[in-house]
């Protein structure tokens, strides 16, 4: 098609548009919805751990929660930032999300090594991983749907970050039900394996769903 004709078509098609909400607002909106979804699913699907009251008074347990939720918020913000082309701060948020995840995992690895624990495959661990993935799928799907209207310039990466953001909330919720606090159990089955899987799944889905 000739350029002049093409430009005329674009001009004729012009309609007023509502600009996107600021990315921080989009990210926090998703985060609140995701927490509500996961909390509801967790409440109905999984029994609370017997020692929850005692655990809630432990600083390390609360710190673990804060860390995970912070990673989730950062990853959600990174997705929202990537969805606005040319916006500064995208790389910083992407790096911060993955870096914080790495630091958090390293803390558990260090604690496990200090205690002389061993890595291993256990049925309970696989169940924990499956639970995190199950809990995360719905909020992740919602985030994908929400991000379709955006213009992600890195669709695969956005998908991975959606997986990370959802998975960390799932891991936070599972901490309310799973009473196995061994560092390597948490490292393997609450963090590395489920989050890695969700990131890979998110990457593949992102390349399909968020391409425009």
């Amino acid at each position: 098609m000739k350029n002049e004709k093409f430009l005329d078509q674009l001009i004729n098609d012009l309609q007023p548009v509502k600009t996107f909400a600021p990315p921080i607002q989009t990210a926090l909106y998703w985060f609140v919805i995701a927490v509500l979804i996961i909390a509801t699913l967790d409440f109905f699907m999984m029994p609370l751990r017997a020692d929850l009251a005692q655990k809630l008074s432990e600083f390390s347990f609360i710190l673990q929660w804060i860390f995970l939720l912070l990673i989730s918020v950062l990853a959600a913000m990174a997705v929202s930032w990537i969805g606005r082309p040319g916006r500064p701060g995208q790389k910083l948020l992407i790096n911060a999300s993955f870096l914080l995840m790495g630091v958090f995992s390293s803390i558990f690895a260090a604690r496990g090594l200090q205690m002389g624990a061993h890595l291993g495959c256990e049925f309970g661990g696989v169940r924990c991983m499956a639970a995190i993935i199950m809990l995360s799928i719905l909020p992740a799907a919602f985030f994908f749907w929400q991000s379709r209207r955006a213009a992600s310039v890195y669709p695969g990466l956005s998908g991975s970050l959606i997986g990370l953001a959802s998975g960390t909330i799932g891991a936070t919720a599972l901490a309310l039900s799973c009473d196995d606090d061994k560092p390597f159990h948490l490292l393997e089955w609450h963090l590395v394996f489920p989050l890695l899987l969700l990131c890979v799944m998110g990457f593949l889905a992102g390349r399909k769903v968020l391409r425009w």
């Binding site: 600009t19 996107f20 600021p22 606005r84 082309p85 955006a150 213009a151 425009w212």
Partner: peptide, 8 residues
């Protein structure tokens, strides 16, 4: 054109 709403 289609993503003009993403411009802040």
């Amino acid at each position: 054109h289609t993503k003009r709403h993403t411009y802040d």
